[in-house]
Simulated assay, not measured.
Amino acid sequence: MDFAGAYSGEFLAFLMEGLLVTLKIALISIVLSFTFGCIIGIIRYAKVPVLAPVLGVVVELLRNLPLLLIILFCRFALPDVGIRLGAEGAAIIGLTIFEMAMISEVVRGGLNGIPKGQIEAARSSGLSNVQTLRYIVLPQGLRQMVPPLVSQFISLLKDTSLATAIALAELMHNAQIIIGHSYNYAIPILLLCAVIYFTVNYLLSLLSRRLESKTT
Rank of each mutant, 00 (worst) to 15 (best):
L72W: 02
A186N: 07
I71M: 10
A167S: 12
V21N: 02
V58R: 00
S8N: 07
L156V: 06
I92P: 08
D80V: 03
D2V: 07
A122R: 04
T22K: 03
Y202W: 15
Q118R: 01
R75S: 13
I178G: 05
I103Q: 06
G86R: 13
F73P: 08
L192E: 02
R75F: 15
I114G: 04
S182E: 10
L65E: 01
C38H: 00
V81H: 07
L69Q: 08
F11M: 00
L19P: 03
N201M: 12
F153K: 01
L204V: 04
A4V: 12
T215A: 14
L12W: 01
V50I: 12
S104D: 07
I177S: 12
I154P: 00
N184A: 15
T96M: 14
A26R: 02
Y202F: 14
C193G: 08
A4Y: 05
R134P: 07
L51S: 06
Q144W: 06
Y7G: 01
M172Y: 03
Q176G: 06
K24W: 12
N201E: 11
E60M: 05
V146A: 10
I187K: 05
S155M: 03
P66M: 07
L149S: 11
L85D: 15
G180C: 08
F36L: 15
A167G: 01
G5V: 07
V137Y: 01
K214L: 13
A169C: 00
I154E: 02
M172C: 07
S125H: 09
Q118G: 01
P49K: 10
R210P: 00
A121Y: 01
P188Y: 10
F34M: 15
I40K: 11
F3V: 12
M16I: 11
V31I: 15
N64E: 05
S213D: 11
L168I: 09
E120V: 00
F153H: 05
V50G: 00
I42H: 12
G94C: 14
V107G: 01
Q118M: 03
L19H: 03
L168S: 04
L162C: 05
A186Y: 02
I42D: 09
S208K: 14
E105I: 08
L162Y: 06
Q131A: 13
A52P: 06
L20T: 02
V57Y: 05
V107D: 02
A165N: 06
Q140C: 06
Y202E: 11
L15E: 03
F11K: 04
I71Y: 02
R134E: 11
K47V: 02
G82F: 09
H181F: 15
A121T: 05
S128R: 11
S155K: 00
